[in-house]
């Protein structure tokens, strides 16, 4: 888990802390660090590496603009933002805090279970409505116990 790696450089700590305040534009309850979108920061080379979640995720450009604005406003204006495609982003990189925040927000976090627990009532009696949900990264599910629809973050 890159985000949790111990940083000895206080500048790196400050930068990671700053990036942790930038929300994902689609799911603002989690930060881009929680989602594993920030791949690396390099203080000496003055750069930050980001990775897109899905190839066509429309949030990618917004995220880059948000990171640029945050860097500029907090003394990291000379940092370049780079896109890192390989290795490809996976939901395995979502942090445990990120998963907990997703569940609290009403989105079942990615899991290998055949059926997710309903994030609203906790029931396991859930059914897939559609493989594709409101964004490429989510599927639509419904809880047969509380009858509420919900999103499930797809394993990717």
């Amino acid at each position: 888990m890159i985000a949790a790696a111990p940083c000895i450089d206080p500048a790196a700590d400050a930068l990671w802390a700053l990036l942790e305040t930038i929300p994902d534009p689609e799911i603002p309850v989690v930060s881009i660090v929680d989602l594993g979108i920030v791949r690396a920061v390099d203080i000496s080379a003055r750069r930050v590496a980001l990775t897109p979640t899905y190839s066509g995720c429309p949030a990618t450009l917004t995220i880059e603009a948000d990171v640029r604005a945050a860097l500029d406003a907090h003394g990291f204006a000379d940092f370049a933002i780079e896109t890192m495609l390989a290795p490809p982003w996976t939901t395995d990189w979502i942090s445990e805090t990120g998963k907990a925040k997703l569940a609290a927000y009403g989105i079942a976090p990615p899991s290998l279970a055949a059926r997710p627990n309903c994030p609203l009532c906790g029931s396991v009696d859930t059914i897939e409505v559609s493989r594709f949900g409101s964004t490429p990264c989510k599927a639509q599910w419904r809880c047969s116990a509380c009858l509420e629809p919900f999103d499930r973050f797809k394993c990717h």
Partner: peptide, 19 residues
């Protein structure tokens, strides 16, 4: 649901095309 599926597949493909 199908509308969303097709739009999301299109989005994936257009993203790959851009790259």
């Amino acid at each position: 649901e199908v509308d969303l599926s097709l739009a999301n597949i299109a989005l994936d493909l257009i993203g790959q095309a851009t790259l």
